[in-house]
Simulated assay, not measured.
Amino acid sequence: MTTPDGPLQPIRAICVTYNSGAELDGLATSLRAATAAPLELVFVDNGSTDDAPERVAAAHGGRVIRAGENLGYGRAANLGAAGADQPWLLVVNPDISWEPGSLDVLVAAADRYPRAGSLGPALLNPDGTVYPSARELPSLTQGVGHALFARVWPGNPWTRTYQARQESADSAERPAGWLSGACLLLRRDAFEQVGGFDPAYFMFFEDVDLGERLSAAGWSNVYVPAARVTHVGGTSWRERPARMITAHHTSAERYLHHRYDRWFEWPVRAAITAGLHLRLRLELRAAHR
């Protein structure tokens, strides 16, 4: 298909799967209505015990890469991006449902922002509320305070300030510090320039780290709320809460230690470790009730 500006540029859509089941067909079906551009659908499977990726890929003209083990999210997404010649890479969770035309809205926004390395849509919860998917990089006080206390002390001042700023910006197209990796359109040149996702993050915070590295390399991360998707909520998280909670805290510790890695910031790192380990124990206890 062509537009007044010429043919639509092709996109490689990369979906990391892990026992995702029926979610995959919903994703693939909605993706076809989300863009008129040529679309290559690639499932990177992290060790599923069923044949859902193959069945859905066959029905929708996609293909499957079986990793043979659970590589984690970022490393598997890098595998799906390897060898791509399309100018656009779409990294998307299995539990995402697209509104018609929304992927084309993201690509059109990228034409307005030639230095956009990543673009993200409005990420809706199943009840229609907007999830805060475009955020600023954490400052020392607000970021650490929110990370340590948001779950155990929801009314803490750092979280209140963060949420107030986020809610006021959810309707505006704007640059952001980072965008949620649940649904992320990437300019392939930018993604390759920074080396893709850091494979050291098994799950969680790989999107925060990527947004920071894109910014450091001179690219921007742009939130485009005119493009809309619904995040249903993954089965892999619900069935394995303890593993996911542990992975989240491990990645948070890694990221925050990296942010504050100078020698004289060792007290900050020590406080981060102590606070996150305490929060991890509390959340694991709650998950087992």
Results as ranks from 00 to 15, higher is better:
Ser251Lys: 06
Arg254Ala: 13
Pro4Lys: 07
Glu167Tyr: 13
Asp104Ile: 03
Gly68Thr: 12
Asp104His: 00
Tyr223His: 08
Val42Tyr: 01
Gly101Gln: 11
Gly181Gln: 00
Val208Lys: 04
Ser118Trp: 04
Val152Gln: 10
Leu137Thr: 11
Ala22Glu: 11
Ala147Met: 15
Ala190Tyr: 05
Phe204Ile: 07
Ala67Thr: 03
Ala287Asp: 04
Pro126Phe: 12
Ala274Ser: 15
Arg228Cys: 06
Leu8Gln: 12
Trp263Val: 10
Ala169Arg: 11
Ala274Ile: 14
Ala182Met: 13
Asn93His: 13
Pro114Leu: 07
Arg254Gly: 08
Pro7Cys: 09
Ala172Gly: 13
Thr246Arg: 15
Glu69Phe: 06
Asp261Pro: 08
Thr35Trp: 03
Pro38Arg: 00
His248Met: 09
Val56Ile: 13
Gly47Asp: 05
Asp127Thr: 13
Arg285Phe: 13
Leu284Trp: 08
Asp127Arg: 14
Gly145Ala: 10
His257Glu: 14
Leu256Phe: 13
Ala247Gln: 13
Leu140Glu: 08
Ala169Trp: 04
Val152Leu: 10
Gly234Leu: 03
Phe204Val: 09
Arg240Leu: 09
Leu31Ser: 11
Tyr131Met: 05
Arg32Asp: 09
Ala28Gln: 06
Ala216Gln: 14
Ala52Asp: 02
Asn221His: 04
Gly80Lys: 03
Gly83Leu: 09
His288Thr: 14
Ala28Pro: 06
Val44Pro: 02
Asn70Ile: 02
Arg238Met: 12
Asp261Gln: 12
Val152Ser: 12
Gln142Pro: 09
His257Gly: 12
Asn156Thr: 08
Arg285Lys: 12
Leu256Ala: 05
Gly101Met: 13
Ala172Gln: 14
His248Val: 00
Arg55Pro: 07
Thr129His: 03
Ala182Pro: 03
